[in-house]
């Protein structure tokens, strides 16, 4: 469904964030991107929905080159790609429901939506989505009154309102504790398995990667240095580890006994 070809991003200040990155994503995959902070994970995800304009290369999403689309046509591509963020990126002072409804903005008449009214069918849908994620009772609250885990669920609900074919999750659990991290990733996984939404997710913890990923790519300084499956991570060699995380990285596998 998604094909990245020779993607390169050079920022205005000369920083090379992505170098000639190419990979495919099949329908229904749970692709995890790993790598150090600054390795280009976030840039990569944001290039896919053109929050960042790539310098070179192609991003073919359902047969259409997103990288070549003019700004005015982006709306139709973006609304099929949901996005979940590390810091949730909710409008803190708006209600949970308003935040979720905003996910539908790509579909409704832009001028009608300026008054702040959404059709009843969409409101009903939003409540259903919140209910599905177990936070329907929080709908009227201000977004910043919720706990971190709940806020990330609101973020997922907003993405789901888009009826996405693909969800980009940029370190969705990096600000959450381990229990919540599993819960949020579990939610993404069940969406992935039950509704077939493809997920591209950047993660830091390798135990999470091997638990949830169907496929893994490793980035280092904007280049792909590792390709494998979630299972491969378990057998990852020290060399491969140092390829991704650098020579000085020390590999720890906490709480795991030799069998």
């Amino acid at each position: 469904m998604l094909e990245i070809k020779n993607l390169t991003k050079v920022y205005d200040d000369g920083t090379v964030a992505l170098k000639n990155v190419s990979f495919d994503v099949q329908d229904g995959e749970f692709l995890v991107v790993i790598g150090l902070s600054g390795s280009g994970k976030s840039t990569l995800l944001r290039c896919i929905n053109r929050l960042i304009d790539p310098t070179e290369g192609q991003i073919i999403f359902n047969g259409e080159d997103v990288a070549a689309l003019p700004q005015s046509d982006l709306r139709h591509v973006r609304r099929k790609i949901g996005m979940v963020f590390q810091h949730f990126n909710l409008v803190k002072r708006s209600s949970v429901l308003t935040n979720v409804l905003a996910g539908r903005l790509g579909y409704i008449n832009p001028y009608k939506s300026l008054a702040g009214n959404f059709p009843p069918s969409i409101r009903k849908r939003a409540l259903e989505v919140l209910d599905h994620l177990g936070i329907a009772n929080q709908a009227k609250k201000r977004a910043d009154e919720l706990s971190g885990g709940q806020q990330q669920r609101v973020g997922i609900a907003r993405a789901l309102m888009q009826d996405p074919e693909l969800i980009l999750a940029d370190e969705p659990v990096a600000s959450l504790d381990p229990v919540l991290a599993h819960s949020i990733l579990g939610t993404l996984e069940s969406l992935n398995q039950e509704t077939g939404i493809t997920v591209i997710c950047s993660l830091h913890y390798l135990d999470l990667v091997q638990r949830y990923a169907t496929r893994v790519i490793g980035l280092r300084s904007g280049e792909i240095v590792y390709r494998g499956t979630g299972k491969d991570i378990r057998q990852m060699t020290d060399e491969e580890f140092k390829d991704i995380y650098g020579e000085e990285a020390v590999r720890v596998s906490a709480g795991k006994r030799e069998e």
């Binding site: 973006r78 990126n89 832009p110 939506s113």
Partner: peptide, 25 residues
């Protein structure tokens, strides 16, 4: 800037981004 980015990602137009991400803040 977070919410602005998030609303952009939903396919919202510029006006919608202002209305739903900038104005509420």
């Amino acid at each position: 800037p977070g919410p602005i980015e998030a609303i952009q990602a939903t396919g919202a137009t510029k006006l919608q981004v202002i209305r739903y991400a900038v104005v509420p803040q």
